[in-house]
Write a protein that binds this DNA or RNA. Structure first.
Lengths: 341, 341
DNA sequence: CTGAAAGCGCTTACAG
DNA sequence: CTGAAAGCGCTTACAG
């Protein structure tokens, strides 16, 4: 039903080799010939079969996107950014979800991207250096997002610095009991982002001469429900926090709801700062650390495409900017609680 | 560097045809032979090249997902559901975004999914029957989501009924001036969902004997910012609404923020009902119409895979359930405004 | 139950 | 500038 390259060749009265060259814009085709081929292709509504092109060309023309899950805000934004730029370059993007059936283990065992992609954008993958090296052995170009140096080009935000900024903001407002809502305890996967943000939180407290109370660090699993649960736990403390730094906006929003349900006013009784600048954060007035996630996806895709076309660009790590956005969930601690020196 | 089917054949001392059959679990392979082949494949870490399989097999083993955009909550949830089930069946999913460069026009002109997918899940595509027929002519199996009958199997929610339910809830609380925040005015794309929800809104008012004030219907573009803008406009009315039904939770959240910024209490001064049950809605206490979006994606994928494997299942339309979830943004109108008969 | 061979629809040296 | 031919790595009748 659908035209093949042979049909086009016949109609344009040239060889299939010439059709192939003409249609892909390769040099060494007479302008008149190219026009004729183009016309024939248009007449026949010809499109090349990608499977055949890929097999013959030795390239899959697809790039893989390795994420913990799809469907969470952060990863869907990233996907959107990556997709836009690779699609424009004629590549498909194929998602691999680490937290799916079998989890990271099966991914690392089967390396399911073998023979399927020319390159990989690997996001937040909880793999150690040895495991990462095994992935690279497959021979696909890799660009990472959110991973500290693993010998591949990559993009990161300075999570520790951003966390210091967020917590510093709370300290500046006069808070002394500042909680953190972070990843999960004893994370079996070893995600690095929560660890780095925790470190920044601790550094900020230490720098300000505040003591670290381990009970003030609650796991939130980077989900709305987890944030809510963490807040519930923090509220049962003998001496509850006057402020909390949540390592994602979703956790912050979950926490905020619990606080309000408990009768606390935000920010009068409790300050909350998030991380991400999620789409809704502006509309719930959340003070947060902003990072442009779509842009990170776009940039990672650009780096990857650059490598694939032989560029030597992006051999190192790029640090993406982050900034504090003060909205309405952060303010001074309630009187009689802060400033007690 | 990486093993081909020939390498496996040699190591197992069989032909490549046998390797192919053994590895794919086809019948007519002696158990002992199959075991030997499996062993050889494992030893060599063999995986079949998908491009070659697809070309030889005459199937792309990928299904396309046609959405207006990626990166919006609703579509990313759908993607997640679709991806999970088709991946389990060995298919890839390839997204096509209608609102990208060139828009719907270019999509319909180029039909870029030709030769690239075996089937298509088409979501909310603003195409008329003739355009849809042209898509079907390509010969790929199609399952739709959110489209009224176009001759392909499909999934819908009863948007009009759901809207009646939402607006009926507000009427039951005593509201008489109820606004709607919907799609865009004079939608050039012709999305049907906003139209159906608008109709349900109007029907509910009419049934209750309330008058329809066209100024109470404001466009919100299904975005947070659009919802905010719509609310701003509604607040400038001589006689502002006491309740609003927003056709998506994101618009509802945008509207809610604007109302609160204007000093209105929700729900004491203004009730708001949304649509979707977005992840965050529970945490902002939003009364809304719930639909299970991930499940819709999963179901559409199942229907599509069923068709692809020759099943005749799902030739018709399935109606997915929807239900009202009352939380904290809806209540009686302020005294002196409702119940004035 | 197994193998030899054709074929899927392209791309890419290689010749001219 | 163009074409004939090999080849990409599989799958699938067809024979046996």
């Amino acid at each position: 039903v659908t035209a093949s390259i042979e049909d086009v060749a016949r109609r344009a009265a040239v060889s299939v080799a010439t059709v192939s060259r003409a249609l892909r814009g390769l040099p060494n085709v007479a302008p008149s010939t190219r026009a004729r081929v183009l016309g024939a292709a248009t007449d026949l509504h010809y499109v090349a079969d990608p499977s055949a092109s890929r097999l013959a060309g030795g390239r899959s023309l697809t790039i893989g996107l390795v994420v913990p899950v799809l469907g969470q805000w952060y990863y869907s934004q990233l996907f959107s950014g990556v997709e836009a730029v690779v699609a424009a370059a004629g590549y498909d993007v194929l998602p691999f979800t680490l937290m799916g059936p079998g989890g990271t283990g099966r991914f690392l065992d089967t390396l399911p991207f073998r023979k399927r992609v020319d390159g990989l954008v690997v996001v937040d993958a909880p793999v150690d250096h040895e495991q990462f090296a095994r992935m690279m052995d497959v021979g696909v170009t890799i660009v990472t997002i959110g991973l500290s140096d693993r010998g591949a080009a990559g993009l990161v935000v300075d999570n520790a610095a951003a966390a210091r900024l967020a917590v510093g903001h709370l300290i500046g407002l006069g808070h002394q009991r500042i909680a953190l809502i972070g990843g999960v305890d004893d994370d079996p996967f070893g995600f690095s982002t929560p660890v780095d943000r925790l470190r920044g939180y601790q550094e900020a407290l230490r720098t300000a001469g505040l003591s670290l109370d381990p009970r003030l660090a609650a796991p939130g699993n980077f989900s709305l429900a987890g944030g809510a649960e963490a807040m519930n736990r923090l509220l049962t403390l003998d001496e509850p926090p006057t402020a909390v730094f949540a390592c994602s906006d979703e956790m912050a929003i979950g926490a905020m709801q619990v606080a309000r349900d408990a009768g606390l006013r935000v920010p009068e009784d409790l300050s909350i700062v998030g991380f991400d600048d999620h789409d809704v954060s502006e509309y719930v007035g959340l003070t947060t650390i902003r990072q442009d996630v779509v842009q990170q996806g776009e940039r990672a895709a650009e780096l990857l495409l650059g490598c694939l076309s032989g560029g030597t660009e992006g051999l190192g790590h790029e640090i993406h900017p982050t900034r504090l956005i003060v909205r309405h969930t952060s303010g001074p601690p309630p009187p009689g609680v802060g400033f007690r020196w």
